[in-house]
Design a protein around this nucleic acid. Structure first.
Lengths: 346, 346
DNA sequence: TCTATTTTTCAAAGCGCTTTGGATACCGCA
DNA sequence: TGCGGTATCCAAAGCGCTTTGAAAAATAGA
């Protein structure tokens, strides 16, 4: 089953390659009847243009690049595949491919330069932006369309991004706890070089202030979001002379560890200790599946992947349009893991 | 910073494109001095051949395809990105790209056919093989080099694969427990349409038989490997009139849920209930990080990714060589979560 | 009826690389 | 001196597609 090419198809139809190509690509300068015939034949012979030839001729690669920083991979890891699953569906539907490069052997910067220079990709998605992220400047310099999943910190420039309102989400979560009477609320955050984590801390601080609660650095941790770190930090918190009665975790992973620590200490969730986690919608660790089900700030990372793919594709299609800047609010879903603060003499 | 192409580079050097191309690609028919000059100039101008042109001219894409079946994605999900992280490093080092297609809009079969027809990829990695997997036949028919992560069930054909000895691993795990005096050992397995899960069940059954223990279907579950399922199944087990005193989980995810259920029931791990999990080395959920640290059958999925990438690349380079068939044994790492069976009147 | 338009179609020139089939120059050796 | 070899290098033909610039055909305007 060797592939048929344009030339052969054109020969079969007694038409020129030009006409066939145009008919297939929807150009206006071709007769209706002819177009029909061409389409029909293409279908019958299952003709598909050789993408490499198309790429060479057009300079468009029909490919989106994703660079996985290998050092930070641990962080974005499980979230990353969820994101791709969402984005991938959109790309696939538009005939785009995803190419994935793992930084490490080749440096992240080198990869972007290669992308740009050899038009390997039409655009890239930037994952895990940090507060001060050089990648955005680089990509801008290279003229490569890009969209950031999240936001860079201070950056003033105009760039495309989709982010969730991390600050608002954690502000709401903190307020919920404060309003339940909790006075010592801990935050088991992700690494605060990442903007999302920095924003969450901000929201947390804002809420504390608005409720007249002190910001106690001893109650705030910033680590990679793993089960183990969640467990370790929760354990530390439980050993404090004056224990927090509530904790907010930046991910279901660290929450899972925190829950384990709470169990081990013989305390009950939602009664002795309240807990809220941010839920990205990881399918293998569902907040609803816990007992009690977890109160969460929720936003589907998969949906973000889909939406960002759409946005990037339209940026590529229409380069002169305004750069999209999308902020999603995260839902605060109250479930059983949050309850009134135990009486203070507990 | 527009890319310099072969023609320009050749002009600069007062050489023909032929010679420059050959010099760069290491062909013998070019003088040493000339080659040096060419290399030097290429470096100076940071020349990089346009991959699309190369692809078109050679028909080789320098790309490996990975198809993510969207329906099964939940399963391979967190493991998948680990795998890619490992494979990606190898690909990157050899100048190969990874392209990823999410099945869904386009069917899985259609994607493979497209891959083959338009030489989009030089080879593919098949993930999550099922006992009876049509993909292998398809790929063989299409003549696309492929390597399977795992094995198909009954398939007699000769194909490339890398798998771990799932049967042996679970046999060892079960024997360990039996030898500690456990008589009722449960298995919280993955979906047994997947070969890895079927093999694990086999190993479990073999061990039971060798130790003269009955195979009780009520002690064996087969579900997607999520935290929630692990929790649910463990809970069920704990409600049995005659409870199992030990359980083996097919993944750290389900183990995590099982542990939660054990905690909730007020039992102690390694004393009241022993637990062993299979550990793929997911960085966000480490067996060593639990308390007590988990006894596991361990094999790094990331290492598998790297090795399989190497194998596939060499298959592509040397298509006539024998197809690699690699079986890794999983380590049985004994830690604190396994202990002697509690006295039977417990 | 004949010219001016508009439609429809085509031949040919790239896109940037590899590769085939010669040239050309250089060497040793008879 | 002349000839077969060998070491270097090159012009040109693809790879399969898009796109430009024109021609041919069909339609309209007068």
């Amino acid at each position: 089953m060797i592939a048929m090419n344009l030339k052969e198809l054109a020969a079969h139809l007694n038409l020129s390659q030009t006409t066939v190509s145009r008919a297939l690509n929807g150009y206006p300068e071709v007769g209706e009847e002819t177009r029909r015939r061409v389409r029909e034949a293409a279908r019958r012979f299952d003709y598909r243009p050789n993408p490499n030839a198309t790429r060479l001729a057009t300079g468009k690669s029909h490919t989106i690049g994703h660079v996985i920083p290998t050092d930070r991979t641990l962080m974005i890891d499980p979230h990353f595949s969820e994101f791709i699953a969402g984005a991938g569906e959109v790309y696939g539907g538009s005939g785009f491919d995803i190419i994935m490069s793992v930084a490490g052997p080749e440096s992240e910067e080198a990869i972007y330069r290669r992308y740009a220079k050899s038009s390997t990709v039409d655009g890239v998605v930037v994952h895990g932006p940090q507060v001060n992220d050089w990648r955005l400047d680089l990509l801008e310099e290279l003229g490569l369309p890009f969209i950031v999943h999240g936001r860079a910190g201070e950056r003033t420039g105009n760039y495309a991004w989709l982010d969730i309102d991390n600050s608002g989400a954690f502000e709401n979560a903190t307020k919920l706890l404060a309003d339940l009477g909790h006075r010592r609320i801990a935050l088991i955050n992700g690494l605060e070089v990442m903007t999302f984590a920095a924003h969450r801390r901000q929201g947390y601080a804002i809420a504390l202030q608005s409720r007249g609660l002190p910001f106690d650095p001893a109650l705030v941790f910033s680590d990679a979001m793993t089960e183990e770190n969640g467990h370790r930090r929760m354990r530390e918190l439980l050993e404090y002379a004056v224990r927090p009665s509530a904790v907010i975790c930046s991910s279901m992973l660290s929450a899972s560890g925190a829950i384990r620590a709470i169990h081990e200490s013989g305390r009950r969730i939602g009664e002795d200790i309240s807990i809220i986690a941010h839920d990205d919608g990881l399918p293998f660790l569902r907040a609803e599946g816990l007992t009690p089900p977890l109160t969460t700030t929720r936003s589907s990372i998969r949906a973000a992947g889909s939406r960002m793919a759409e946005l990037l594709l339209s940026m590529i299609k229409n380069p002169s349009a305004d750069l999209p800047q999308v902020l999603w609010t995260a839902d605060l879903v109250v479930r059983g893991s949050t309850g009134p603060a135990p009486s203070s003499h507990a």
